[in-house]
Amino acid sequence: MRTKEKIGAYQMSFLLFTFMTGSSIINIPGPLIAYAKNGAWISLLLALTAGGIVLSCILLLHRKFPDLSFIEASEAVVGRWLTICLAIPAIWFQFHMAGGIVLDIGLFMTSSMMRQTPLYVFTLSMFIVVALTVRSGLETMSRMFVLPMFFVIVFVFLIIILASNHYDMKSLLPVMPDGFKPVLLGAYFAYGFPYVELFLFSMLLPYVNSDEQSMLSKGMYAALLLNGFCLLCVTLTTILTFGPMAAERKYSMFEVAQTVDMMGVIQRIESVIGFSLIVNSFMKASITVFVIKETFTKLFRVQNDKLLVFPVSLACFLFSMLFIAKGETRWVNAVTVLHPLEATVAYLLPLLVVTIAASFKKKSSSRG
């Protein structure tokens, strides 16, 4: 079944940058520095390399099956039943991702801004907005995300500049105080969040206009590199500002913004980082829910995919409430320790199986 909606190659690249940068620009530095210490930037470079490999597999599969999503390409290569087996962990983890992204917004709000408000108020409200956004379609999403993402990047780099008077260059040394093992642990964390999550775009690439396929690879790699640059900047900013205490900063850029005080005129601007986290997470959650809807549509050949949006969003909300019911400590452990392993099984393994199988297939196929 051909996709009715179509977007440009650069719009898809922008969606990739939005998805990858998303909540990670606020959430990555603290846990990453906790793992890798001053070598966090090396961990990011290693994880970025792994992300480039994942993206290469996705683009290779797309070149072979330009009109097919991952589910459709998998059916063409390995058959329907094996595709269903590969899709089950992927679907579960997509729900895990969507629920976790929105849950993080709620935890941020209840811990940093509105402590007396029940958590479900934020998560349910956000999923309602996400559902309405997903129903509007990918073309609308690719247009409406441009302006908010532009302001988010401006806000983040403005804070990086304004906080520069607190930087201590000595905090960057020694680079690997505990050897290379912590750097590898940091790379493992950053690989799982956000780089292996690139897999979701294997479901979206058929939306790109056929006459812009030649520009797609360049745009996607450029988006990935720009994402890596942004994450490097915020990670180094956290280390330069807080030094040995950087690993204890959960929402690091929010706390960096709290240090900004220029002659009593420019101060208390951490609210813009709160805005950035909410907007970024909303955009990433919208893309994730859209992919869940696409996965069900292609796997079960649903004719009216918009009917799935609200049930899927409700299921994601219930997932988020189930996560936090086990306690915030277990949730944090799941994100920082188990998330990369689960993502490898749910995303990377199916991608590698289908890509390797497709590489032995002589003729490409498409579905009209």
Rank of each mutant, 00 (worst) to 15 (best):
W81Q: 02
G8M: 13
I53H: 03
L16P: 07
L322M: 10
Y207P: 00
Y188F: 10
R63H: 11
L147Y: 14
P31A: 08
P89I: 10
F157K: 00
L16R: 07
L348C: 11
A73P: 06
L119C: 07
G52D: 01
T18C: 13
S164A: 15
G219A: 09
K298L: 03
I161W: 07
L82Q: 02
L348G: 11
S364D: 03
V78D: 03
L158P: 00
T83F: 00
E197Q: 08
L46T: 00
W92N: 04
K170C: 00
K218Y: 13
A90Q: 05
M262G: 03
C85L: 13
M262C: 11
F65Q: 14
L318V: 06
K298E: 05
A246Q: 12
A163W: 12
F201G: 02
D104E: 12
L224M: 08
T237P: 12
T336K: 03
V77K: 02
A98H: 08
P148Y: 07
L231D: 09
D67A: 03
F65N: 06
L277T: 11
L348R: 12
E212I: 08
A343H: 09
L205I: 04
L68Y: 13
M220T: 09
A346G: 05
S111I: 05
V332W: 03
A9V: 13
M176T: 13
G51I: 09
F254A: 10
P206Q: 14
M220E: 02
G219N: 07
M144R: 06
L119Q: 05
P244V: 15
I42K: 07
F19P: 00
